[in-house]
Amino acid sequence: MSTLQMSLAVAGGLVLLAIIIHSAWTTRRNAPKQADPAAVDGAAPEAEPGERQEPGFDGDSLVSDDTEPRLDAMPLPSLERRPGLDALIDSIVPMTLENLVSGDAALAALPPTRRAGSKPFAIEGRNDATGHWETPAAGQRYRAFQAGVQLANRTGALNDIEYSEFVVKAQAFADAVNAAADFPDMRDEVARARELDQFASDHDAQLAFVLRARGAAWSPGYLQQNASRMGFVAGTIPGRMALPAATVGMPAILSLSFDTQAALAEDPAQSAIRDVALSLDVAQVLRTEQPFQRLREISSALAAAMDGVVTDQNGQPLREESLDNIGMDLEKLYDTLDGRDLSAGSVQARRLFA
């Protein structure tokens, strides 16, 4: 082989090697960012996901997030009124009794479903021993009952059909326990429901920031690792994480969501995630948690750590001035909810805005 041929062969080999190296570098640069194995031990531990429950009438089950809270803290009684039926958001029917009724008889007479249409429905009894209203329980005796149906929620106002279904169920219970039921006028209750629904519609705020990748996409593991450092824990649904509240039993402060298919992929490390949603359901979270401030801080910190940019849902970057204005509007909203006795994070607000 001549010197020229050898030179050409060497040059060709170098060019091929350069192409291979460039291709590998490009592939590596464009591959989804992966979690740092060395940082796993230092990352925030993932909590066992809890069962999501819709806010309801029972005080011990008023949970509206899909994770267990991370901290044990005292509740805030100033914001927590009695968790049962409330004339503020329920249409209530008193039922008088001539004789005491056992809890077992009341349980046997309860309707099979706890809804009238799309509205929660409940029956409570006044415990003869304690004098407190409660969900009927075996072994107790009751001197009176009351039935209630929620006037409004995010599905809309209580309508004529739903109220009629409520009347049928409540009357059947009253007949079974030999109680006299005093039903309010349907037109008045439906009118109350519409007014409450209008108020709720005018003051329902759900905020969503979008965190978008500037360069390389993120793998699910990389995203989860960074989010866990901010206090998020995995939810029961793939692609969902939540920032637990400090108070036991309260809804999550913030939620984080990304493509479910990416989370369920056979090889999640190769799944490419380019945007993540960070959400705040204002009425569900206590004002004292400062949820909007935490949303701002966490989204900014994640953007810095993951080389991303925070935008609105239309892809427009969120400026500090715009965020300040949102914060001021939220303070006014909190004041309005407080004035209506529907403080954000209260039992009543969580039921109404559910």
Rank of each mutant, 00 (worst) to 15 (best):
E54C: 01
E51S: 12
F57Q: 10
E51M: 11
A31W: 08
P49Q: 13
D36W: 07
F57K: 02
E48F: 11
Q34P: 07
E51D: 08
A47C: 02
A44Q: 13
F57G: 01
P37H: 10
D41S: 09
A35G: 06
G42K: 06
G59W: 04
A38G: 10
P49G: 12
G50S: 11
E51I: 13
E51N: 08
G42W: 00
P32N: 05
D41M: 01
R52H: 09
V40W: 06
A31S: 15
A43L: 12
Q53N: 00
E46R: 13
V40N: 03
E48W: 08
D58L: 09
D58I: 07
A31V: 08
Q34D: 02
F57E: 10
G56I: 01
A39G: 01
D36G: 06
K33F: 03
F57Y: 15
E51P: 01
D41F: 02
D58N: 11
V40F: 09
G59I: 05
A47L: 15
E51C: 02
A39Y: 04
Q53F: 01
Q34A: 11
K33C: 04
R52N: 02
A39H: 03
E51H: 06
P45V: 14
A44C: 09
A43I: 07
P49H: 14
G56T: 08
F57D: 12
P32R: 04
S61Q: 12
F57I: 12
S61W: 08
A35V: 04
E48P: 00
Q34M: 08
A31L: 06
P49I: 14
R52T: 02
A31K: 08
A31R: 13
E54F: 06
E48M: 13
A43S: 15
S61F: 15
E51R: 12
A35Y: 04
P37F: 10
P32M: 04
A38I: 05
A44E: 14
D58V: 06
G50C: 01
E48Y: 07
P49K: 15
A47F: 09
E46W: 11
G42C: 00
A44P: 00
A39W: 03
P55R: 03
S61R: 13
D36S: 15
A43V: 13
G56Q: 10
R52C: 05
D60L: 11
P45M: 12
D41C: 01
Q53A: 01
A44R: 14
D58G: 00
P49F: 13
A47G: 07
A38R: 11
A39R: 11
Q34F: 02
D60Y: 06
D60W: 05
K33N: 04
D36T: 07
A44I: 10
D41H: 02
P49W: 13
P49E: 11
P37C: 12
D36H: 08
A39Q: 12
A43K: 00
D41W: 04
G42L: 03
G59V: 04
P37I: 09
Q53R: 09
S61E: 13
D41Q: 05
E46T: 08
P32W: 02
R52W: 15
P37W: 11
G42T: 05
D58S: 10
V40M: 12
G50I: 00
E46V: 11
A44T: 15
